[in-house]
Design a protein around this nucleic acid. Structure first.
Lengths: 157, 157
DNA sequence: TCCAAACATGATGCCGGTTCACTGTGTTAT
DNA sequence: ATAACACAGTGAACCGGCATCATGTTTGGA
């Protein structure tokens, strides 16, 4: 019984620590979780319209405007006109934005090494299995998000 | 190499999911992470002065005033005068606050069961070992907090 | 011509956090 | 005793982030 509680306690602690650690290192670059998420999404999908981002981040369109505003003023992103549809603005990663996206990837890989390297293989495997199992259970409770009926978007994806 | 990355990805996902899940269920009760933390601290320590809370939550004294304000208006907490030192106010859990603290404990235990029950013991053990190992590594990077030179506090602890 | 999509803007609200100045209260040393 | 210092907490003013709704503008298309 109490073993579970203890394990959950540690797991939550881990969750909070990781979460805060990420938030901290993002803040050091002038980013936040939302903004970083936006950058990552952009990096994977290429230039897209804001509506797509709104859906991907699961927030209101208004909020995307705000996030993009912030990223524009900090130079991570630009708003480019859509080649044919003049209503549409394609949010596009700048050089700096792309570099940042890659740096975030690198940081992640570094962190991965820092956390896991030197761990015995059997323990590592068991750990990842455990994580997966818990993720699965957690997702059963978590809310679902219906897919965007992809209109005629920016290219990418 | 890439195995680490994948594992970290899952772990981060777990961290975020857990974090957000907690935030959500707290919000449902009119709480936030900070306020819940304050309640937990109060539940463990008994009535204490705000300064102690400021230290425990690692925020400014002023901020504690704000958190306590909020918890007072929502009825989780009261401010009681210190019996002898009239400068001091002892923040005290109300009945409702105490119930909430215990409910949070219960919820935790429930969550623990939901996540871990049914997991094979060897995997469970390996998982917790993995969590501990990662926590240890993570803490090496994390900032430290010097202990409060316990003055003449509220009772408890 | 007129509707609807895509986005912008303004007004609000909440959260969490800060600094600075100030009051009221103990403590201590002269 | 009293003057000087230390401590607890508050009020005011602020910053920044995330999120909302309502409303406005431009533009593509039926």
């Amino acid at each position: 019984m109490s073993g579970y509680d203890l394990a959950l306690g540690r797991t939550l602690e881990l969750a909070v620590l990781l979460h805060d650690d990420i938030a901290r290192s993002l803040a050091a670059e002038g980013l936040t979780r939302s903004r970083a998420h936006l950058i990552r999404e952009l990096h994977r999908r290429g230039p897209v319209r804001q509506r797509v981002l709104a859906h991907a981040l699961d927030v209101s369109a208004r909020n995307i405007t705000g996030l993009v505003d912030a990223l524009v003023t900090t130079g991570f992103v630009t708003r480019e006109p859509h080649p044919t549809d003049r209503r549409v603005i394609l949010v596009t990663l700048t050089e700096k934005g792309a570099r940042m996206a890659e740096e975030m990837d690198r940081d992640r890989r570094e962190l991965a090494r820092a956390l896991f390297s030197g761990m015995r293989k059997d323990r590592f495997d068991a750990f990842t299995e455990g994580v997966d199992a818990i993720l699965a259970r957690l997702r059963e409770t978590a809310p679902k998000r219906d897919p965007l009926p992809v209109t005629a978007g920016g290219h990418g994806e």
